[in-house]
Nucleic acid binder design. Structure first.
Lengths: 221, 221
DNA sequence: AAATAAAACGAACGGTCGTGCTTTTTCGCA
DNA sequence: TGCGAAAAAGCACGACCGTTCGTTTTATTT
């Protein structure tokens, strides 16, 4: 369903299957916790057979990051572009994100978060890729925020980068409370924080129009 | 200076020294990235000699969590109790935290964060201890928030747990941007987010009194 | 169906891991 | 100064790690 695109010729097909299983493990145990041995065992294949598809553990990790980012963008940002620019689209992005967190990231873990923590003070291509994909989604969200300003939904003095910084903080806190502390109220807290943040940056005219807890559709793909 | 308390009889003395070096490694590479071998090499001691002080790797990790939590509380919360209850104390806590982040956590890493990510879906005593120390500082900060409400500095309808949730999100975003993305503006962003949050929850009378970016002392120990 | 290419396998390498022993060194005290 | 206890060292173990290589099994093409 969310598997990677159309496959061809056996090779790419099993490569995709490996990537799929690897994402499952890496989400749980992190990119460093993922070992080729356990990945092979889980797939009922030999270690060397699995290994050959990527050439090195590092390239496997990079492929994992790319695939995870692809799914994230597809689930969070892509469906939102069908909505009107401005606050509707920004809100939809947040809701899509929240839905993804509840359905896949809380049960399985998030590679963006574990990867960031694991590689934030380690040099090399894995770290660099991590930075790249992070910048990519941040840019996307900043663009949506900027459009909300242009539409007059958010105040002109609202800094898009600051807004995205704060919203990502909400997501990180959500992961922390939901996964480590197993606090069921975390999702509600995250929504409240989002509302409060948007409310703060909302243009006066728009703020009055916000019926405080309006309906917010999550746009499905 | 911030070494652990008074030591006695060689044994506890070297144990403290090991803990000190281990904290350095664990901050960088996480609790799982810390190995007894590299710890021994770094100290110029034998693996088994280091090992004997803790009995198991798990107990070493737990001792590390405790020591890290002790230092955190000592640096962030303890100095703040000398200030007046309410917003002054809450603000001091945040500033002390921010100072610690800049001086030790950004350069070295944070065990609370890496530990949370590493153990959030793994059962066992290490995870449990992680939860315990997390709850401890959250309770402390919630208390400060509650007092700020009682003092009339924050609105009566402000939920202390929600406030702490949001403030921790700010800290997590700070770590992310400062460590992974190496964004020097992260600290400024965190302060802005704190101001905005407190401003939002501030009681009307207090809000007017806030001269927007007032002096905020960081209370030294 | 035969020939060629791609994929999976199995065994082995050098390393590092945590941990259990036994022995040696060092310390604290009478 | 010497003796008992505590601390450190040395060594070995089984397990798992990523990786390499030669072989065998599958796919694909002629």
């Amino acid at each position: 369903m969310t598997k990677s695109a159309v496959t061809s010729s056996k090779g790419l097909q099993t490569r995709a299957a490996i990537l799929d299983a690897a994402l499952d493990i890496a989400s749980r145990d992190g990119l460093e916790g993922l070992s080729i041995g356990m990945l092979a065992e889980r797939m009922g294949k030999s270690k060397s057979g699995v290994f050959a598809h990527f050439g090195s553990r590092e390239e496997l990790q990079i492929a994992l990051i790319d695939e995870y980012a692809r799914r994230f963008m597809e689930a969070v940002f892509l469906p939102a572009i069908r909505l009107a620019r401005g606050l509707p689209r920004l809100t939809a992005m947040f809701e899509n994100w929240l839905h993804r967190v509840q359905t896949v990231e809380i049960p399985n873990g998030c590679v963006f978060i574990s990867g960031a923590v694991e590689f934030d003070d380690r040099e090399g291509p894995v770290r660099e890729r991590m930075v790249t994909v992070n910048r990519a989604w941040q840019r996307e969200m900043q663009k949506a925020a900027r459009q909300a300003i242009e539409c007059g939904h958010l105040r002109a003095d609202c800094d898009p980068e600051q807004l995205v910084f704060e919203l990502y903080g909400v997501m990180l806190a959500l992961h922390h409370d939901a996964r480590l502390l197993r606090d069921a109220r975390a999702v509600r807290r995250a929504r409240l924080a989002f509302d409060r943040t948007v409310d703060y940056y909302a243009a006066p005219a728009q703020a009055a129009r916000n019926a405080r807890r309006s309906a917010r559709p999550r746009v499905a793909a």
